[in-house]
């Protein structure tokens, strides 16, 4: 039997600690603002200008094919108009010319000789037309002043 003079002291159960979510929200908002401000959202593609040459046989400029190759030289004037054999072409006509030359079955090698005053878009457009026509061997040549 329990003595009534003795009172039993019970320790209160400590309240369950709550983890505050406020610091996490702060951190997430800072990260969000950081990514929104520092990221760029342009959709960018690339066109190879210099590609790694793994095969030594292709280092001489040939396409590696045993067939005959037809070379076509495209001059790019300062006004951005591609010309070949003295004739100016617009881009669809240039693409048609590439397709016509490729239809003969020979490998088509395209050399582009741009004027230094032509703009970047003109060169990219010519490269684009060649790629659309299926040309795989395209080189940009540049004249340098002899020493």
């Amino acid at each position: 039997m329990q003595d009534p003079s003795i009172s039993i002291l019970k320790r209160h159960k400590p309240p369950r600690a709550l983890i505050s979510l406020v610091p996490m929200i702060d951190v997430m908002l800072i990260l969000l603002v950081f990514f929104m401000v520092t990221s760029t959202y342009l959709n960018l593609d690339m066109i190879p200008a210099v590609e790694r040459v793994d095969d030594a046989s292709t280092s001489d400029g040939s396409s590696g094919s045993t067939g005959t190759a037809t070379t076509i030289m495209i001059r790019l004037g300062a006004d951005g108009v591609p010309t070949t054999q003295g004739r100016g072409f617009d881009l669809p006509a240039l693409e048609a010319l590439f397709l016509e030359r490729m239809a003969s079955g020979d490998d088509l090698r395209v050399l582009v000789l741009p004027s230094g005053a032509a703009d970047m878009q003109a060169l990219v457009s010519v490269m684009d037309a060649a790629t659309r026509a299926g040309v795989t061997n395209l080189r940009v040549v540049r004249l340098e002043v002899a020493e």
Binding site: L42, N43, L44, D45, M46, I47, P48, A49, V50, E51, R52, M120, V124, D128
Partner: peptide, 12 residues
């Protein structure tokens, strides 16, 4: 000595 050089473009 760069082995891969590319020109940056945007999709048309």
């Amino acid at each position: 000595g760069a082995q891969d050089v590319v020109l940056v473009v945007t999709p048309e």
